[in-house]
Design a protein around this nucleic acid. Structure first.
Lengths: 148, 148
DNA sequence: AGCAAGTAATTAACATGTTAAATAAATAGC
DNA sequence: GCTATTTATTTAACATGTTAATTACTTGCT
């Protein structure tokens, strides 16, 4: 049996835990959950996104996103409307209020990133990001490649 | 605002998702959840472990582990008893039945690892594991280093 | 046009995780 | 040696995630 220390999923989880430990206090202060933050952040980059596309981009299942969108909408951090062309679609966009939350968080966030890059080392950090990106791409095509 | 694609937590999450997609069918077949699997696997390496130590090793909070341990114990995949020296401690160990589940899973698991290493490339895979290990160590000392 | 099949999102029922309070046992200070 | 504090785990209340079923709409077929 492969030793626990050689488990890729566990290593990824541990790394994520170690990183999130630094961001959680700021999320708490901003009053958003991890997942709400992913939504807001993703919406900052695009004008208006379909719910399904958004879910895919930030690793959330649609039922989860559905509730998160409802909550964020209630709090006026995002807007949602139905597609005109295709009325099944839910189109989501960030509000000025939502953008303000992101901008406030972003300041803290960048400081943490600086600390993290400093602790890990600029080179090792860049290498890690690249390795992850490559692995994700390759794994995704492996997963797509062998359907059912 | 830092682009979404440069988010380290999201990249780690996406990578983990992509990897787990390959293991989930086998876990389902073996009738264990992701977290139960982490417990069983960790227990294979040690004779008998304290619950708290186990939780730490596999990134589970104690209340979660408490329930998981209760379930696995009910299914006779693990044994638990209290410490003799310190009666607060919960000592957990794997049963032959539990070990059988792990061994069955391990066969599938190793095949998947082979495919993954093949898809990602042996060198890139090794590099990723090393980068992750290093990042975890450095992040943990960063997190430990600045308490409260 | 009219209906079958497919698709996007939601809802419902359930499983799991999380935070805070409770329990139980050990250690420390007097 | 007794009380106060700390430590390990569990329980309870609540939040979140997940799978399957449902709704609402679109598309393709005849």
């Amino acid at each position: 049996m492969r030793p626990l220390q050689q488990s890729l999923p566990l290593k990824l989880l541990m790394a994520r835990e170690a990183v999130m430990e630094r961001f959680r206090p700021h999320l708490l202060e901003a009053g958003v959950t991890e997942q709400q933050w992913r939504v807001l952040r993703a919406l900052c980059e695009r004008e208006e996104v379909e719910a399904g596309e958004l879910a895919e981009a930030i690793c959330l299942k649609m039922p989860s996103l559905s509730r998160i969108i409802a909550d964020l909408s209630r709090d006026r951090l995002i807007n949602r409307r139905n597609g005109v062309d295709d009325k099944r679609l839910r189109l989501v966009s960030i509000t000025p209020k939502g953008r303000a939350v992101v901008e406030k968080m972003a300041r803290h966030s960048e400081k943490e990133y600086a600390q993290i890059q400093d602790a890990v080392g600029a080179k090792a950090y860049a290498a890690l990001m690249d390795d992850l990106e490559e692995a994700i791409t390759k794994l995704n095509s492996l997963n797509q490649g062998a359907p059912d």
